[in-house]
Design a protein around this nucleic acid. Structure first.
Lengths: 152, 152
DNA sequence: TTTAATTTAATTGTGCGCTATTTAATTGCT
DNA sequence: AGCAATTAAATAGCGCACAATTAAATTAAA
C-alpha cells in the first residue's frame, strides 16, 4: 500500500474532520440563537458592517448578496435560500436596490441587531474549547493563511 | 465592534474556507475517477483494507458500515445513501453479514480495485498544490492532531 | 439607438452531513 | 423460553455547497 494513499497521512482528511468537529462544537452555542453556522457567518458580516449615524440612529451600510458572497466565498445558489430562511426568522430583510434592480441588499433588523449581544461570548467559549494557547492559535492562523493563499 | 466577533479573527472561518477550497482542488482530479471527495475517502479505507491470500486470489477483509463510519466519523444517515450510489457506480458491493443480519459488509469490486492505480498520483498532486514544504506539512499535521484531540 | 455582451440573483438538481425516527436482529436477563 | 434492552442500518427531513441554467437589468458597442 502506498503510504500517501493512507487516510492517516492526509492533510485534507484532518481538515475535513476538524471542520466537522468545529461545527458540532458550535451547534449547541448557536442553537440558543436559532442560527446555523453559515447563518452565524452572515450575521458576523452584518454586525461588522453596521454604521452609526449622528443622533444615535442606527443605519446599515448597503451590503449586496454579491458582496456578502465575496466575503464568505459563497454563491447565490447557497446564499439565496439561506438568506430567505434568515428573513423568515426575522433577523434580516432583503430589498432590491432601486438604483440597480439586479442587486439585492441585505439589512439587519432590530431583532438581528439585538442578537449580537447574545453572541458576544461565543468566540471566547470556542477558543476555550480548542485548548490552544494564544501563541499556538496565532501560529496556526499564520500557517493556515499561507496555505489558503497558496491554494486559492 | 468586539475584535473577537470579527470574521477575519476566527480560526473556524479559516478552517471552513480551507476545507471548501481543498474540496474544490480535489474535484477535477476525482472527476476522472467519477468519485466525490467523501466517496474517495471510502475508497481509501477499502484500498487499505485489502488482504491478499495465497494463490494470488484477492480477498477483502470484512468491513461493516459501522466500522467504516468509525474510521470516517460518519453515521449511517450519511453512509447508507452514499454507499448505495457507489454500488450503483460498480465500485463496491454490499452484503448482509450472514452471522449477524443487522450488519452490512462493504466489499470492493474488481472495478473498484482497479481504480486504485488511477488514484496513485492524487496525493502527490494535491501536496504540490498546497505549496508547503515537507516540514511545514509535518508541523501543520502535528498541530491539527493536537487540536483534534482537544475538541473531540 | 438598437443590439450584443455582461452582470446579478434566483432556480434546479445532486450530494453530502446531521438529527430523529423506524425496522429488524441480537443480546441479556429472569 | 420469554421479554426488555441494545445494536445496526435504513429512512425521512432539513440545510448547506456547488454546478449549471434561467431571467432580468445594465452597460458597451456598432
Amino acid at each position: 500500500m502506498s503510504e500517501q494513499l493512507k487516510l492517516e497521512n492526509q492533510l485534507c482528511f484532518r481538515l475535513y474532520n476538524i471542520n466537522k468537529a468545529m461545527t458540532r462544537l458550535y451547534a449547541p452555542l448557536l442553537k440558543s440563537l436559532n442560527l446555523t453556522y453559515p447563518q452565524y457567518l452572515v450575521m458576523l458580516v452584518l454586525w461588522q458592517n453596521k454604521q452609526w449615524e449622528v443622533e444615535l440612529r442606527q443605519q446599515e451600510q448597503a451590503l449586496s448578496v454579491k458582496a456578502l458572497g465575496k466575503k464568505l466565498n459563497l454563491d447565490s445558489g447557497t446564499l439565496s435560500p439561506l438568506l430567505k430562511r434568515m428573513e423568515n426568522l426575522g433577523f434580516i430583510v432583503r430589498k432590491r436596490n432601486t438604483d440597480d434592480e439586479r442587486s439585492v441588499e441585505v439589512y439587519l433588523t432590530k431583532q438581528g441587531s439585538v442578537l449580537k449581544e447574545k453572541a458576544q461570548c461565543i468566540p471566547a467559549s470556542m477558543f476555550a474549547k480548542t485548548g490552544l494557547t494564544a501563541e499556538q492559535l496565532h501560529n496556526l492562523t499564520d500557517t493556515l493563511d499561507k496555505l489558503m493563499a497558496n491554494i486559492q
